[in-house]
Write a protein that binds this DNA or RNA. Structure first.
Lengths: 193, 193
DNA sequence: GCTATGATTGGTCGAACGTCCAAGACGATC
DNA sequence: GATCGTCTTGGACGTTCGACCAATCATAGC
């Protein structure tokens, strides 16, 4: 009965804490995640939090970044899976319909945006994350000969996040209804059909 | 030397508290606004907060709603001041460039969106506020014969808020660069120039 | 076995929190 | 000038917070 080694238990605890933090940030809000509720969700004692992480803020920062990285990585694959980036944007918009705008995953993004305005380290890392993703969209659009791929990528991503924001307020909003209009932005005028 | 009456002092205190709350929500975050820092900003004793307002949450709710109402009202005038709603959207986008995305006014909006997902009363009132504004945009677009004014209004407002979110992360973003692309959305194809 | 090292426990510290309340201060009314 | 309603003060209440720490436990290497 060889149980887990000490190192394994340590990394397992860190992983559980990060996962719990990722859930709680969206559920109750960044500033409402305390060491005690976090430990309870992760099924461990509060003292462990500050043993495995330098501070609560550092833990939340890392949890948010890893969660966002995971979500963006999954979505970025759509860009390379389709030939026409306009179709890819459509697909990403359709995937956006799986989020209600009030679920923990959506809210984690918004919470992170806000936290980034008050945490320089998070700001820098999150900026790099968004910049990379936006660069991918812009590059895909540029390949089709889009006249302003950078600006179009900025607009597309603003629509994504802004739509989530509004959807949280009005769940009746449907991504399908704005998809054809967003296509006006991603399409390249005068291109062969 | 007739000083202010008791009633005047009361309403003045309420006004000061609401103004201070509006500032602080954006500066330090909704959940970080406490009775004590709020009273300090409003230059009064902490005990007064719960004399003039039922609870801290009720105060923050009212402060956020009044602040947003004021900002949206000012912007809505642009809709009636111009003949072409596409020009109005351009003007609103230009006005958006006065916000950095990290200033208290911008952040108050985002904070309110988040708070609305956890406060049913705020949710309802804010939904009505956004709905009314969006209806104005849609009506203006409908007048030009836009084929999908409702969807276009949803997309335009998503761009506004989403762009603010991204601008807070990357101050280099300029509304001017996405304006011509957003025009593709608001324009009515086949309309007389 | 014994000892290193890392993981975990339970508890404590001072500070800040939302809310409430009795007592005082002020202007209006008679 | 007494009285009344409103506004204001200062302090108190129980709770929770982030952070820290000595003691205990479990594994790994000798």
């Amino acid at each position: 009965m060889a149980g887990p080694t000490n190192a394994e238990r340590g990394t397992a605890a860190r992983t559980k804490l990060l996962a719990a933090a990722g859930e709680l940030i969206g559920e109750i809000g960044w500033n409402a995640v305390s060491t005690r509720v976090l430990a309870e969700r992760a099924d461990m004692r509060p003292g462990l939090v500050h043993y495995h992480f330098e501070s609560l803020q550092a833990l939340l920062r890392q949890a948010a970044l890893e969660a966002m990285e995971g979500m963006l990585a999954g979505t970025a694959e759509l860009l390379t899976a389709t030939d026409d980036p306009a179709d890819a944007v459509d697909a990403m918009l359709a995937e956006l319909d799986r989020y209600t705008g009030a679920d923990p995953a959506s809210l984690l993004f918004i919470e992170a945006y806000l936290a980034a305005t008050r945490d320089p380290v998070l700001h820098e890392r999150m900026q790099a994350l968004v910049h990379r993703f936006r660069g991918g969209v812009a590059a895909a659009l540029a390949r089709t000969g889009h006249p302003a791929p950078e600006a179009a990528a900025v607009l597309v991503m603003a629509v994504f996040d802004g739509f989530l924001l509004h959807k949280g307020l009005d769940p009746a909003l449907s991504a399908a209804s704005i998809a054809p209009l967003l296509r006006r932005v991603t399409d390249t005028p005068g291109a062969p059909a």
